[in-house]
């Protein structure tokens, strides 16, 4: 029983796990947001076939379990191409692509929320396509997309817990290890749950703050 109790070391272990979870979350979110936005811009420029291809891939990613995607990348791709993939690499690749698929949809609808007349007016004023994108579409689309994007990121943080299944020692895996050692499931999973909850709340708060700043121009200021 001596080694089965909780010790101060376990706090370090939990924080380590939280660090891994947050690192993966932040990096994959960043890559996912950039990639998703790029894919949406490709759609705007109407490249041949690219649009159909992107739609197909994003629909596949959105409509299948992330766990299966993780298995495909972690077990499937190494077997097919005979390459070594570490759990961390597989997790990074899968989560980034998965986030990109959802970001793509959000950005596309954000771009579509902008009146066609604005784009046409910009073109008539002699702005190039890039200038229209940069100065007319982007500022409004970003303000429009912040809300859904925050909801997505809160969700993606929770999705990172799945990477524990392929062996990444993230917060959930640390919880699993502590659970097996101490045999106190209530305490362990409550603590893990609280940590995830707090992280999710911080993301939601930050997203709300950014959204308020970006939409301040149209906020109700009273009479």
């Amino acid at each position: 029983m001596r080694y089965a109790d909780f010790g101060p070391h376990d706090i370090v272990l939990l924080l380590n796990g939280l660090g891994v979870s947050l690192t993966l979350f932040l990096t994959t979110s960043l890559v996912g947001v950039v990639l998703g936005a790029l894919l949406a811009v490709v759609r705007y420029y109407r490249v041949l076939v690219a649009r159909e291809l992107v739609t197909f891939v994003t629909e596949m990613l959105k409509n299948s379990p992330v766990l299966v995607q993780l298995f495909l990348v972690f077990f499937g791709i190494p077997a097919l191409f005979k390459i070594d993939v570490t759990p961390f690499e597989a997790a990074f690749f899968t989560l980034a692509l998965n986030t990109a698929a959802f970001v793509y949809v959000i950005v596309v609808s954000a771009v579509e929320s902008i009146d066609r007349e604005q784009i046409e007016a910009g073109r008539v004023f002699g702005l190039t396509r890039w200038q229209v994108l940069r100065h007319v579409i982007a500022p409004q689309a970003v303000a429009f997309a912040t809300g859904p994007l925050t909801a997505l990121l809160v969700n993606q943080l929770q999705v990172t817990s799945l990477i524990s299944v392929i062996g990444v020692v993230d917060l959930t895996k640390v919880g699993d290890i502590l659970n097996m050692r101490t045999l106190k499931p209530f305490i362990v999973w409550t603590v893990v749950g609280v940590l995830y909850y707090l992280a999710a709340k911080i993301i939601a708060l930050a997203g709300g703050f950014v959204e308020r700043r970006l939409t301040a121009h149209s906020a109700w200021k009273g009479l």
Partner: peptide, 21 residues
């Protein structure tokens, strides 16, 4: 608020290991 902001996997383990307790 709680059940939307905690990963399902954690909830599942909570019940799976917790209920026998």
């Amino acid at each position: 608020d709680i059940f939307r902001n905690i990963p399902f996997l954690v909830q599942l383990f909570f019940f799976y290991y917790g209920l026998p307790e």
